[in-house]
Design a protein around this nucleic acid. Sequence first.
DNA 1: GTGAAAGCGCTAACAA
DNA 2: TTGTTAGCGCTTTCAC
Lengths: 350, 350
Amino acid sequence: MKSSKEVTIYDVAKALKLSPSTVSRGLKNHPHIRKETRKKIQAAASEMGYRQNKFASNLRQKHTNTIGVVVPRLNSYFMATAIAGIEKVTSENGYGLIISQSQESWRKEISCISTLFNSRVDGLLVSLAYDTKNMNHFNILFNRDIPVVFFDRVADCHGCMSIIIDNYKAGYEATSHLVEQGCRRIAYLGGNMLRNVYSERFRGYRQALVDDNIEFDQSLIFVTDMSGQAGMETAQKILKMKSRPDGIFTANDTTAVSAIVELEKSGIKIPEEIAVAGFNNEPISQVVHPNLTTVDYPAREIGEIAATSLINKLKNSANADLSTIVLKHNLIVRDSSVRYNQNHSRSIRQ
Amino acid sequence: MKSSKEVTIYDVAKALKLSPSTVSRGLKNHPHIRKETRKKIQAAASEMGYRQNKFASNLRQKHTNTIGVVVPRLNSYFMATAIAGIEKVTSENGYGLIISQSQESWRKEISCISTLFNSRVDGLLVSLAYDTKNMNHFNILFNRDIPVVFFDRVADCHGCMSIIIDNYKAGYEATSHLVEQGCRRIAYLGGNMLRNVYSERFRGYRQALVDDNIEFDQSLIFVTDMSGQAGMETAQKILKMKSRPDGIFTANDTTAVSAIVELEKSGIKIPEEIAVAGFNNEPISQVVHPNLTTVDYPAREIGEIAATSLINKLKNSANADLSTIVLKHNLIVRDSSVRYNQNHSRSIRQ
DNA sequence: GTGAAAGCGCTAACAA
DNA sequence: TTGTTAGCGCTTTCAC
């Protein structure tokens, strides 16, 4: 194993007394090559330590076998898991991955897209930043027919594909569940309504109230950045309210958990005084006391399916493309929302 | 904004009646170019929608401005945070990132390294898999002088750089702390001793026992894969022991937390009957009840410093390279290990 | 089934 | 300060 120069197809060709083009063809199983020749070529190539120069190849072929990923943040359980899924299928399919973070900022997202565009990724997987207000920065991609698949935080645009769950339904189910447990004043704690994940969960929340004949109360709606900090602060606001809610539906687990911790510090009993439901089924939901009722969210699958869809689109550009894939979610009921007494009295009442 | 062909420096040159080389130079602020010309070139280029073709450039320059990353898993708090740090500094320095996961497997790690090598990354950032037994797969890199910086899970090899914390000291401190709280039979729950992070923490544990005149007991040592599952199973083993430990030092928080949850299910009082200390200061450590004593670990900094070191090495290859950078850790004492009574009685005794 | 040759877009040595 | 030119390694048309 020498530390010498790179081996090129010219070197292999010379060694075999063949032409470079034959070697090139032999290396990629071109049909018009005799079996023996091909074998000879491949043997010699690996013998000599040949490795393809992708730049030369890309330069000719005009594609990079690279996929760009733009996510709000890397260090959340959901994203890390989704990306693990993405990485799995892209690497299995011979694609490289360039991952970048928008840091939840529209501005930074614009620059990520532009960088990735300049890196000539073949396609993109994106989940939108918290405050992205329009999709103009994607136009450079659409103009060149670079396919984009959105996942989780999606937007309608140019018939791009989206991989999501039914956030409306999940929000509806979580809220209904709280109602079933006897809650009548249910707070909603969510993020920027620009993002589908929050607006849809909110829509579900609201519809559940309507269907249960509970009046909507604007003072119970909290829109925050959905950080742990925000959960704490909202809990403090709730503590100061004259007429406190008796239930909270939170659009993620991080805020739910920090709200619970904060509420319990002040002696509030969960779920007796305030029942809580979160979203995402992060590991933390099984550790907090009481264990958190939450919506299970197939992070890994979302990543895998997003990547698979993009690769399909890349492979046969004349694809009959589904525009949206909706994955199944699952309400997981745990102690933070179950009121055994209440349940009991209800069943007696009926 | 047309969706037409790519603009090349030839197009720009033609439009400006200059030569391609002048345009090339003008675009990258080459010193031998008049200011006006440069401005004219840059204006025209952006006007015309020019974007550099990196393949052509790479093909010429023999480097890719791309850094490869190999980590055991993406979806752990520590790794996601470290990678967030890496991404920050690489993107600031104009490097792309190719991230891959070894899935904790030596075999897969070998293939990751080889793929990255074939992608011609300029350098690598790696944290070793759980069961990597030798470093031969790195030889292809060393043979071509491709620099590698290890972080967190490191190994001595070819004078590569390593970014770590003092795991020995941290293990020592955590164990000593448990002793101070009155523990006399302290279990150690760790991973494969091949990995520095586990062997060093174990070494610290052991030395702390020696220094406190506590006899080492092999039956209190549990080597697992450090998953949540493993924490649960180990807790069950401990529950069945005739002579149970009165303290546990666990080499990560995930296992610590699931062990605590499992022990408490069986009515064990934490920390009164068994005091527990973990490692990593994951968010979950502040949610579990009782809050977990743990070692704070500068994940983001480790990532940032690893990336910075690699880039420095890349930029001036004649670098006076430090071989190891040790970052500060910090024992965070929380309720899972503090025995107020015990403390009190000790202070009286003294 | 194989070879010759051109060219992808850029950079850098050399020339002017 | 700018231009000329060759060539990075590969693929692909066209010719044989």
